[in-house]
Computed example of a mutant assay.
Amino acid sequence: MPSFPALSDSWFADAEFDASYGHTLSSLRAIAPIAAPGGFAERWQSWREQAKTMDAAPAVLSSETAHGRRVSVIEHAGVDGTRLRAWLVEPLSSPARVGVVHGHGYGGRGAVDLARVPDDAAAIFPVARGLPTLNAGIGAPEPQAEHVVAGIESTDSYVLGLCARDLWMAADALGTLVGSLPLYYVGESFGGGIGALALPWDDRFIGATLIVPSFGQYDERLAVQCLGSGETVRGYVAAHPEARDVLRLFDASSALGFARVPVRVEAALWDPYVPPQGQFGVANAARMLELAVLPAGHAGHPGLEKVTAEAIAGSRAHLARALRAAS
Rank of each mutant, 00 (worst) to 15 (best):
L7G: 07
G281N: 08
G108C: 07
R83T: 03
A320V: 14
L291F: 06
L174P: 00
F250N: 06
R70A: 11
L289T: 05
R129K: 12
L28D: 01
L88D: 04
E305M: 12
G39C: 08
H318Y: 04
T82D: 06
D14F: 12
D14G: 15
G216I: 10
D202F: 00
A299Y: 01
Q225C: 08
D119L: 11
A259P: 01
Y184R: 07
F17V: 09
A283E: 02
H102D: 12
W270C: 09
E290R: 15
I211Y: 10
E231D: 12
P200H: 05
E75T: 11
E266H: 09
R221E: 13
T209Y: 03
T308N: 13
V89Y: 03
G107V: 12
P126L: 10
A57G: 08
G187V: 01
E146N: 14
S46Q: 15
A252Q: 00
L25N: 06
P275W: 08
L174E: 02
G179I: 13
C163W: 03
S154G: 12
S180E: 14
F258I: 14
E146T: 10
D119M: 10
I211L: 14
A66K: 08
G161H: 02
R221Y: 15
T82P: 00
A317D: 13
L294S: 06
F125L: 04
V89D: 00
L247R: 01
D113S: 09
G105R: 03
V307I: 12
W201D: 03
A255D: 04
F40H: 12
I194P: 01
E305A: 15
G230T: 09
F12I: 13
L183A: 04
R264A: 06
A317L: 14
S157L: 10
L25A: 15
M169F: 03
W11M: 13
A96L: 03
A150T: 03
Q225S: 13
